[in-house]
Design a protein around this nucleic acid. Structure first.
Length: 105
DNA sequence: GGTCTGACTAAAT
DNA sequence: GATTTAGCCAGAC
């Protein structure tokens, strides 16, 4: 079980209509760095993971460029009632989700 | 095996 | 308050 799978596993647990950040996942898994999360999520497409629900700490869709098209990420989020403006999540604080909120570690 | 890079972040300028 | 620096650590070369 690599840390990559840990990251992907937590990402799968993100509730529909909610998002989380690289830092939150890194903090929950004590990876040591949010960069590890971003790096791990590169492999999301080969692991059937909703990577579009993971954004940076400002609520920006920083990873949109890694999808087939930069618009996929935004459209997927909007389909979950998450409003996007200029690649940033509106009302980010309201939809933010931290792993401990559900996992209660 | 040293260096560079990266879907990041917090702290220091 | 915008920009830069430093820490993070696993791959690619």
């Amino acid at each position: 079980m690599s840390y990559i799978e840990d990251v992907l596993d937590v990402t799968r647990l993100i509730p529909k209509g909610r998002v989380t950040t690289y830092g939150a996942i890194a903090d929950f898994l004590t990876l040591g760095s949010a960069r590890m999360v971003g790096w791990a999520l590169r492999n999301a497409d080969t692991h059937d993971v909703p990577a579009h629900r993971v954004v940076n700490r400002k609520g920006e869709l920083s990873g949109r460029n890694m999808f087939s098209t930069p618009f996929i990420m935004q459209e997927k989020l909007e389909a979950e009632k998450i409003n996007i403006k200029e690649n940033k999540i509106i009302n980010f604080d309201a939809v933010f989700w931290h792993p401990s909120e559900t996992l209660k570690q």
